Amino acid sequence: MSESNSQWQCYQEAEFLFTQALSSELSFAIITAHNPKGQILSACQNRLLDRRLQFEIQQLHRPYRAMIGASADRCHMEKSWAVSIDKASAIRLGCQFNQNAIYFVEHDKLQLVPCLLSKTKQQEEVVIGPFSPRVRLVNELPDFD
């Protein structure tokens, strides 16, 4: 399995940490600025990118919420944002921050949507399944310092 296929599989196994439950009727995107193009950056570099992404999200004047995308074993976690925007806008934002993919949730259906990877035709959008079973409620989000 190539590195991009292995990464694509990992994306499909993600869980999502929230401090509050979301309605299953909401449609929203999950976007991160961490680790552009799948390259692991320092906490400081990721924090700077995250602040830039948050600024861009605020300019959209749409509801949003901080959250964490994580591997099931919590060995890998990325600060992310759940943003109430359409899929096309989410893809543009993902591309702007050099992300391989974003997630899109529509009526509790989780989709993995390629951004940069779609340009090379290596990956296609995947409907992963129900979103709510992948949500983990936490008292507070982990700190990335």
Rank of each mutant, 00 (worst) to 15 (best):
R51W: 11
S71L: 04
I68W: 04
T19M: 00
A88K: 09
S27D: 03
S80H: 05
H61E: 07
I30Q: 10
L49F: 06
N98W: 01
Q45D: 12
F18M: 03
P63K: 09
V83K: 08
L48H: 14
V83Y: 10
L41D: 09
A29H: 10
A66H: 14
Q59G: 08
Q20I: 08
A90L: 07
E13F: 01
R47Q: 14
F28S: 05
A29S: 12
A82K: 13
M77P: 04
A21Q: 15
L22Y: 13
S23D: 12
R74M: 07
E78R: 09
C44K: 14
C75F: 02
A70D: 00
F55L: 13
I68Y: 03
A88F: 02
I40Y: 07
S89I: 03
G38W: 02
L93W: 04
L41C: 07
L53K: 13
T19I: 09
I40E: 12
I57V: 11
I68S: 04
A21W: 13
N46F: 02
A43S: 14
S84V: 07
N35Y: 03
L22T: 11
S42F: 04
A14M: 13
M67E: 00
Y64K: 06
L60Y: 07
Q54Y: 06
R51E: 15
R92M: 05
S42L: 01
I31K: 02
R92K: 10
R74G: 05
Q45L: 01
A90P: 11
N46P: 12
N46R: 04
D73Q: 08
S80L: 01
Q54M: 05
L41R: 08
W81F: 15
E15N: 11
A14H: 12
Q96H: 08
N35I: 00
K79P: 15
R62Y: 05
T32Y: 06
S89L: 05
D50S: 14
S80G: 02
S84M: 09
I31W: 04
S27T: 14
Q59T: 09
T19C: 05
R47P: 12
D86Y: 02
I30V: 14
Q54W: 05
Q45E: 14
F18H: 06
C44H: 15
Q54N: 07
F16C: 07
A70S: 13
L93D: 02
A72L: 09
E25A: 10
E15M: 08
L41V: 00
F16W: 15
A82M: 11
Q20M: 05
L53E: 15
W81V: 01
A14D: 01
R65M: 08
L41K: 08
F55Q: 15
I30L: 13
A82R: 13
A14P: 09
R47A: 07
L17A: 03
A33R: 05
I30S: 10
L22V: 14
A29G: 10
